[in-house]
């Protein structure tokens, strides 16, 4: 039997918002270490990796590993039925063909349960090699979302260049060109507003704006975002999810023809 109880159902609501435009369906792999999801978008340009650790749940039980094939549009509909402050419990029998979501209002006066059919998804799993990245940039997630939104007005691609001076985001297209440079912040009193850059060697890569704007749907999950880059390997965009886990987006670069 699988049962996971989370006092803050808002976390799951935000997780769904963070993946539902990029993925249509995905397999939630449940084990005693937690819930993991790995899926590529339909065009195989990006990969989403979600990890929610069992010790981040208020109650967690997983007697046997369980893979739940979920239609994300359906799950989004169910999550919309939950209040932000509701307590959420996910429940499924072993090798079940459905999963039940229960939502309890904080004062326990309203108890709802929704049963959703599961799908048989034979999704291929990719091996993500451990990488020591040349550049690791941490910046406010709202700032990154703003940069991706603004630059996508100028062109389909963004060039992200990281040097020891700072990180530069550039775009060019029919109306002209745009450059946004962020320097490392000196001493900021609020950690969440810092821009920090760890650079082993400078890197410059080109990415499609469309996917970056999908990734920034995860902004409500974390005040900071971490970008990891190395020459000719996918960009990693990581948002921490409270104390329970993280969501990582991998984006293949655009390369010279």
């Amino acid at each position: 039997m699988f049962e996971a109880r989370l006092v803050q159902s808002s976390i799951f609501k935000k997780v769904l918002e963070a993946i539902k435009e990029l993925l249509n369906e995905a397999t939630f792999d449940c084990s005693d270490s937690g819930i993991q999801l790995q899926a590529m978008d339909s065009s195989h340009v990006s990969l989403v990796s979600l990890n929610l650790r069992s010790d981040g749940f208020d109650q967690y039980r997983c007697d046997r590993n369980l893979s739940m094939g979920i239609n994300l549009a359906s799950m989004t509909k169910i999550m919309k039925c939950a209040g932000n402050d509701d307590i959420m419990t996910m429940k499924a029998q072993d090798n079940a063909d459905s999963v039940t979501f229960m939502f309890e209002s904080p004062n326990q006066e309203k108890m709802s349960d929704y049963e959703m059919k599961l799908m048989n998804l034979d999704q291929e799993h990719l091996g993500i090699p451990e990488t020591d990245y040349s550049c690791v940039i941490k910046l406010p997630s709202a700032e990154f979302a703003r940069i991706c939104r603004d630059l996508s007005q100028f062109g389909e691609s963004v060039v992200i260049s990281c040097t020891k001076e700072g990180v530069k985001f550039s775009a060019a297209g029919d109306i002209g060109s745009a450059n946004i440079k962020l320097a490392q912040t000196a001493n900021v009193d609020k950690e969440d507003e810092a821009v920090s850059i760890e650079m082993q060697e400078k890197v410059s890569l080109t990415f499609a704006c469309r996917y970056l704007n999908y990734f920034t749907k995860a902004t409500p999950l974390s005040p900071q975002v971490c970008l990891s880059m190395s020459a000719e390997v996918p960009l990693v965009v990581e948002y921490k999810i409270g104390e329970i886990g993280h969501i990582r987006y991998y984006l293949a670069p655009k390369i010279e023809e």
Binding site: M40, H44, L47, G127, S157, P234, L251, A252, I255
Partner: peptide, 13 residues
């Protein structure tokens, strides 16, 4: 610039 596929970087397990 051509868009590459994520599968060309991460082998299928």
């Amino acid at each position: 610039m051509a868009q590459s596929s994520i599968k060309s970087f991460f082998p299928t397990r």
